[in-house]
Design a protein around this nucleic acid. Structure first.
Lengths: 187, 187
DNA sequence: GTCTATAAAGAGATAGAC
DNA sequence: GTCTATCTCTTTATAGAC
């Protein structure tokens, strides 16, 4: 029963599922082993840095997803500014499982994962903020107002996900996502 | 060197400091022992249920704080509606260390603490939502709009704290708290 | 009511076979 | 490249002295 190999992509996807719901400290190598079908030693072969390196790779894969599905579409001028925001809102709605799946940026920002994770996280949030600021500028707001609204939009997404998790009810996330176009595009 | 006793209040306050920053899984009994000055066996004597019972007691003490400093002031008719919101905003600003201290409702909503914690958390968030809805009604909004605004206000507080933690910068919380009066009171 | 001491289970991590 | 086996440290939890 040799090589029950799993692709890096699938592996990180399984790991993402664990980390985003249980957090860094809440996930053990045994959990990762069970979820991926790889023994612990095999996980160390692929990620010599252990759990921290896996979490960091998860984070980077999520950042790639954002670049492709959020940051890039917001800059793509094929469609109107409002349509871009609506498109991205739909992507985010899916990525967060209609409000049922926590934000890995939020959950992994709880200390325990080490400095590399904290710094990667910080950069990711800054990039997200910048992307929202950019579209708000294109949406017709003055620079200061655009920054304010980008921050409010990001707060809305993250805050709604916290609310949904605590209330055990995803409904607030639907309403939050629906607010994004009004927040980022001037009428 | 016998009874280096610590009051329940001080004990839970130390425990709150640990849980709100590191989460349930990120805090060990050794951490609690160091922070409180009590040996682990003594912690079990006071809280036979161990870490879960301590976290639950922490949660209940925070809920008591909210009843006294948020829910009750919002209902107290000595001062104007707007003044009540401003007062509560200032209390929240202090409780969250000007944006430097995470929300224990957020952090403890990550699974791992057991069902009792999850249910207590849910009830706490519902109570907070209800308190904000009440003041928004008094603030001059129609029932539907009051509910919407209460949710948005709660999302703003929680989301801003997530942002501050990830960005390692408390500035957004100041702006979030300042938005509460406009959100909950009609001009 | 707090302590020391320790049990039992689980964690992260590595050696070496295949 | 994945496995089995094992090592060490930390975890939760309890027994029993004071």
């Amino acid at each position: 029963m040799a090589s029950r190999t799993i692709s890096d992509e699938d592996l990180l996807d399984k790991a993402l599922g664990l980390f985003r719901t249980s957090g860094f400290e809440g996930v053990s190598l045994s959990d990762l082993s069970k979820a991926t079908g790889l023994e612990k030693a095999s996980l160390y072969y692929r990620y010599p840095g252990g759990k921290e390196e896996i979490a960091l790779a998860v984070l980077q894969s999520v950042i790639s997803w954002f670049e492709e599905n959020v940051f890039l579409p917001l800059r793509t001028e094929d469609i109107s500014v409002r349509e871009r925001v609506t498109f991205v809102a739909a992507r985010l709605y899916g990525f967060y499982g209609e409000g049922t799946k926590p934000c890995v940026f939020d959950v992994l920002s709880v200390p325990g994962g080490g400095a590399a994770i904290a710094e990667t996280l910080k950069a990711a949030m800054q990039a997200w903020l910048q992307a929202f600021t950019g579209i708000a500028l294109e949406g017709g707001f003055a620079p200061d107002e655009a920054e304010r609204r980008a921050e409010e939009a990001l707060i809305t997404v993250e805050g709604a996900l916290v609310l949904c998790r605590a209330l055990q009810d995803p409904a607030a996330f639907r309403r939050a996502v629906d607010r994004l176009p009004e927040l980022l595009v001037k009428k």
